[in-house]
Nucleic acid binder design. Sequence first.
DNA 1: ACTTTTTGTAAAGTTTATTTGACTTTTTGT
DNA 2: ACAAAAAGTCAAATAAACTTTACAAAAAGT
Lengths: 63, 63
Amino acid sequence: MKNRLKVLRAEHNYTQAKLAELLDVSRQTVNAIEKGKFDPSLPLAFKAARLFNLSIEEIFQDE
Amino acid sequence: MKNRLKVLRAEHNYTQAKLAELLDVSRQTVNAIEKGKFDPSLPLAFKAARLFNLSIEEIFQDE
DNA sequence: ACTTTTTGTAAAGTTTATTTGACTTTTTGT
DNA sequence: ACAAAAAGTCAAATAAACTTTACAAAAAGT
């Protein structure tokens, strides 16, 4: 599962730590998801989508 | 997290067992998700969305 | 009424997501 | 070049998703 978190983070000038704080997860979780180590839970995907005002599909891609 | 799986199932005349088979999960998993016992993983949410030709947000609602 | 199908539920086990703490490497600012 | 900040990573622990087996309750078909 790919995602655009790194780009979105750059666009918003967020550090991994800042994004983690906004999503209410640990910095390592953000890092791991960005690096494709695992997929976020559905609730976390929703949180990210709301944060960036995007649909889940616009952030995460199944391919 | 709410979802419209039961309705979508009814619309397509799918039993829980049939939907489980199409989603490649156990029947109990479908049942548990429908009953709100836990949320699906993001990959599973994507599978359901593709199956019904809907966006994740059209099937699962955060509130 | 009876039989079959579907749904609900529960326990025990496996896998995956997430945490915390610690440490290294890379990037950025001066 | 140096210091500080950010990103990467690892191990051990907990939580949440998902499996299998098994059985009971409810719904549907004849």
